[in-house]
Lab assay of single mutants.
Amino acid sequence: MDLSALRVEEVQNVINAMQKILECPICLELIKEPVSTKCDHIFCKFCMLKLLNQKKGPSQCPLCKNDITKRSLQESTRFSQLVEELLKIICAFQLDTGLE
């Protein structure tokens, strides 16, 4: 393996790690329209609304089981920016390397 191939692999590993961190624990995809709970867990807005609409009253956070309500959800613009920038990095990496 030459040096450039090694560096490509390192970049790919970093991108994969970042994708894992920014993954919704419910749908296991890159978070879309991130919302945070009072317990500071981040999920896709759609995933949380789907969870909350399944029953009346408070639901439980899928990660820590604390009570959550629609009102307690906060849009997470910082995470939204992180996801947007990661998508740009992924696109640039794919253009530069031809890898997916």
Rank of each mutant, 00 (worst) to 15 (best):
G57R: 06
K65M: 12
K20N: 12
G57P: 06
L3S: 15
D2N: 08
L86I: 04
K65P: 09
P34H: 03
E10P: 04
L52P: 07
L63V: 05
N13K: 10
L95H: 15
K50I: 04
I89V: 10
C27S: 01
Q94E: 07
K70Q: 07
V83I: 09
S36T: 13
S59P: 10
Q74P: 14
C64W: 01
R71P: 15
K70P: 08
F79C: 04
T69P: 10
L99P: 09
L99W: 13
E84Q: 12
L82H: 02
I42R: 13
F46L: 15
S80R: 05
I15P: 01
C47R: 00
C44Y: 00
Q94R: 04
C47W: 02
N53T: 07
H41L: 01
C24G: 00
L95F: 08
C91P: 04
I42K: 10
K88Q: 05
V8F: 06
C91S: 09
A92S: 12
E33D: 14
I90P: 14
V35G: 02
V35A: 06
I31V: 08
E84K: 11
K55E: 15
K38T: 13
L49P: 07
P62A: 08
P58S: 07
N66K: 06
K55T: 11
E100K: 09
K45E: 09
K20Q: 15
L73P: 13
T77S: 09
S76N: 11
K65Q: 09
T97P: 01
K32Q: 06
L52V: 07
S76P: 02
E75A: 11
L28Q: 14
I21V: 13
I26F: 05
K50T: 05
R71G: 15
A5S: 12
A5P: 10
L28R: 15
N53P: 15
V11I: 15
K32T: 04
P58L: 13
G98D: 15
Q54L: 07
M18P: 00
D96N: 00
E75D: 07
E33A: 08
C44F: 01
S36C: 09
S80T: 11
L73V: 10
P25T: 09
V8D: 04
S72G: 06
L87P: 03
E84V: 02
L63I: 15
I42L: 05
E100A: 12
I89P: 00
P62H: 10
Q74L: 06
C64G: 01
I68V: 04
P34A: 04
V14L: 13
L95R: 11
M48P: 03
Q19L: 12
E10D: 05
T37A: 11
N13P: 08
M48V: 04
D67A: 15
L99V: 11
I26A: 09
D96Y: 00
C27F: 00
C39P: 01
C64F: 00
K56R: 11
L3F: 07
L82R: 00
C39F: 01
N16I: 04
Q60P: 10
K65R: 00
H41N: 02
Q12P: 03
G98C: 08
R71T: 14
V14A: 10
I15V: 11
D40Y: 04
G57W: 13
T69A: 13
L28M: 12
E29D: 14
I90S: 15
P58H: 10
V83A: 08
L82I: 06
V83P: 02
L82V: 03
M18V: 03
C47P: 01
L6V: 10
F79Y: 12
M48I: 10
Q54K: 09
L6I: 05
M18K: 00
Q12L: 05
R7L: 09
M48R: 01
F43Y: 06
L49R: 07
L49M: 15
S59A: 05
L99S: 05
I90L: 10
K88N: 13
L82F: 12
K88T: 08
S80I: 12
F43I: 05
E10Q: 11
L73R: 04
I89N: 07
L6R: 14
L22I: 03
E33Q: 10
N66Y: 12
G57A: 06
K45P: 02
D40N: 10
Q81L: 10
C24S: 00
C61Y: 02
C91R: 15
R71M: 14
L63S: 10
R78I: 15
S72N: 12
S80G: 14
L3I: 15
D40V: 05
L73Q: 13
F79S: 02
C64Y: 01
A5V: 10
K20E: 05
I15L: 07
E85P: 03
Q60R: 12
T97A: 08
D40E: 11
R78G: 05
I68M: 08
S76R: 06
Q19R: 11
E23Q: 12
T77R: 13
Q12K: 06
R7C: 13
E10A: 10
P25S: 12
F93L: 03
L86Q: 11
C61R: 00
E85A: 10
S59L: 13
F43P: 01
K20I: 08
D96A: 01
E75G: 08
T97S: 10
S4T: 06
V14F: 07
L95V: 04
S36F: 11
L6P: 14
G98S: 04
Q19H: 11
N16H: 10
F46C: 07
E23P: 01
I89S: 08
E85V: 07
K38R: 10
I31N: 08
P58T: 09
C91G: 10
T97R: 09
N53H: 15
E9P: 09
E100P: 05
N66H: 12
C64R: 00
E84P: 03
I21M: 05
C61F: 02
G98P: 06
I21F: 02
N16T: 04
V83F: 03
Q54E: 07
E23D: 11
I21N: 12
N13D: 12
F79L: 01
I42V: 08
K50P: 06
L22S: 02
N16S: 13
N13S: 13
C44S: 00
K88R: 08
D40G: 12
E23A: 12
V35D: 01
C24R: 00
G98A: 03
N66P: 02
E75P: 14
C61S: 02
S72I: 11
A92G: 07
K45T: 14
D2H: 07
C47F: 01
L52F: 09
L30W: 02
E9K: 08
K45N: 14
R7S: 08
K38M: 14
D67V: 04
L28V: 07
K65T: 11
T37S: 07
F93S: 02
C24Y: 00
S80C: 13
E100Q: 09
I90T: 12
P34R: 04
Q81P: 02
L22P: 01
I90V: 09
I31S: 03
V35L: 08
S4A: 15
I89L: 12
A17V: 06
I26S: 09
L99F: 03
K32R: 07
T97K: 04
L52I: 11
K55N: 13
D2P: 07
S4Y: 13
L95P: 00
D2V: 04
I42T: 15
Q94L: 08
M18L: 06
I90M: 06
L22V: 03
V14G: 09
G57E: 11
E75K: 03
E29G: 11
Q81E: 05
K70E: 15
A17P: 03
L6H: 07
A92T: 05
N53D: 04
V35F: 09
I26L: 15
Q74H: 11
